[in-house]
Design a protein around this nucleic acid. Structure first.
Lengths: 331, 331
DNA sequence: TTGTACGCGTTATCAA
DNA sequence: TTGATAACGCGTACAA
């Protein structure tokens, strides 16, 4: 690998001159510029990014922390969308990203997590779906050791932004619509997400508000965003309810398939609007959010933090919809 | 961020001594070792990995090149499995990875690709599903500019290994089984993958061999691994055939749904064994391969290349199966 | 406009 | 057993 010295020698100039040409300094004569560029081309010179970072004292790398659950063979497509969005932005902004699974940190102390990340020159994080149970990540955010953007967790401070849809209103809207479409339903089974999750709490609050307004009976069970658990909840509780509201599409799918096996019908609504829903050919109300865009926005907000802005909350749009197979497969 | 100098000062030793302690040199007295370790702990010192790389002249980073297709909203879960497997190994081996989408390279020349990768200190690649059309990647492999492991492409040289199932035999087996289960079928519609893809050619060869052996009529159409194209092929050609063999599950799903819409029945078989199949509740023969393990193995083979071994071909196992919903959701 | 010299945080060599 | 000191490749004040 050719170094800047080789280029300088070949071009017959000092290496600082080469550096200036490469970094588009003014005050370089066209002549030397041409010489240097010729040498660069000839040698196929590519700056050593390690040396560049060291010299510039820049160590911006973004850690992407996703919460991939291996509960099912089916890897969450939501996380895939998140990662794809972030990868795309990392190319655009020329900022490196490193991917982590939150489960990695479970066995570490808060301090170890910090050291581990810093050793990898990570100074900012995008954390998707933070769970309160992940105490070392929560602490790390509070201590503001890193620039953070939280996707779907409502924490904001000087160095922390959050990007999220309005989970409360969204859950309220979709549940209300579904319940009103089925007027005579008076007993609602709500399959909530995970106990430590922020979004779970917000969505749960919405269904409770709705309960007070519409005066229905409410049974709440936690499905941990896991379709298999949702399935088992259905087997146990569905007959006692006459409408099912699920805090995620995956759980809603588990619920519908379980209901089919029980050979009973209950209206079900979901949350997320994942394409997978199209393949199941189940028609249900759900909330569609654009995970890809959410992740891109999170990256953008991170960039603003790096540029010195203070943390803020960003609200992303959503819509009530049904996911059709035909819409999913058409690009 | 504390540096090695701070530690040295605090411990009252030279920085070279600190370095020795940190890198487990022999010939360091227990006493100084203790002093240094105390200082490290107190300052929360973490070595700057950029400086380490620069000093050691080590720049091992693995580029993961996936071929994510945005043809459908549904991001290929196969790629996600590949990435997850590679991420896991990167943690284990402490080798950094960087993710790329092959489409990024479409607009570059071969030289530009090399520069681009080298500038990011990438010296090895895992390329998933290389297409022959991706000429700059093909050249890069031939010139042996990087250590490469190809997943599902049969190129091997000094610095290039390949990890793959036996696509020929697998396609042969699953097609034969499906055809024999439906004795009276004599006209086969084969929906192949993409024209430039190595696996497409291997699988196509298998169906042709089978044709010669079983004497059926064969119609071949290219679906580019795209379910929407498969769907359109079905609308045009399905009535002329009485059995459909697809080179991927995604296309098979598109085919079955299209057949349903046409209100005709044709036996269909797929390839890959993706979990998504379980959600469609379609029962068909397919080939199950473990993408996660394949990717992990690819990483392992890369490590061997880095350790000086020569490139080789690795064959991974597969099995004929049907993907059941209930198997997919149970962990 | 160009070049010299130093610093970035490490590791490694060689004296002491 | 320890400590100067020279790399590593690059950016950048500052001097020329």
């Amino acid at each position: 690998m050719a170094s800047i010295n080789d280029v300088a020698r070949k071009a017959g100039v000092a290496k600082s001159t080469v550096s200036k040409v490469l970094n588009n300094y003014q005050l370089v004569s066209e002549e030397t510029k041409a010489k240097v560029e010729a040498a660069v081309l000839e040698l196929g010179y590519v700056p050593n990014s390690v040396a560049v970072s060291l010299s510039r004292k820049e160590f911006n790398r973004v850690g992407l922390i996703v919460d991939i659950r291996h509960n099912s063979q089916f890897i969450d497509e939501i996380d895939m969308q998140y990662l794809t969005g972030a990868f795309e932005m990392s190319k655009e902004y020329q900022i490196e990203v490193v991917t982590f699974f939150s489960s990695q940190f479970d066995s570490m102390t808060a301090k170890q997590v910090v050291s581990y990340l810093k050793a990898q020159r990570i100074n900012c994080l995008i954390i998707y779906n933070l769970s309160i149970e992940n105490q070392n990540l929560v602490k790390l955010i509070e201590k503001q050791e890193f620039y953070c953007v939280l996707v779907d967790s409502p924490i904001v401070n000087e160095k922390t932004s959050s990007v999220s849809i309005d989970h409360f209103t969204a859950q309220y809207d979709v549940a209300k619509k579904t319940i009103e479409e089925n007027e005579y339903k008076r007993k609602v089974l709500y399959i909530a997400g995970g106990k430590g999750s922020y979004i779970t709490d917000q969505r749960l609050a919405a269904i409770k508000k709705l309960k007070d307004e519409l005066h229905f009976e409410l049974i709440v069970k936690y499905g941990d965003f896991n379709e298999f658990k949702a399935r088992e909840i259905i087997f146990k509780w569905a007959e006692k309810a006459d409408i099912i509201v699920c805090a995620s599409d995956m759980m809603a799918i588990g619920a519908v398939f379980a209901l089919t096996e029980m050979d009973i019908f209950r209206p079900v609504c979901g949350f997320d609007g994942i394409p997978l829903m199209g393949y199941t050919k189940i028609a249900m109300n759900t909330i569609r959010q654009n995970f890809f865009e959410k992740s891109k926005r999170a990256f953008y907000e991170l960039k603003k933090l790096l540029d010195g802005e203070k943390g803020q909350h960003i609200e992303m749009p959503y819509e009530i919809c049904r996911v059709d197979y035909i819409d999913v497969i058409q690009k």
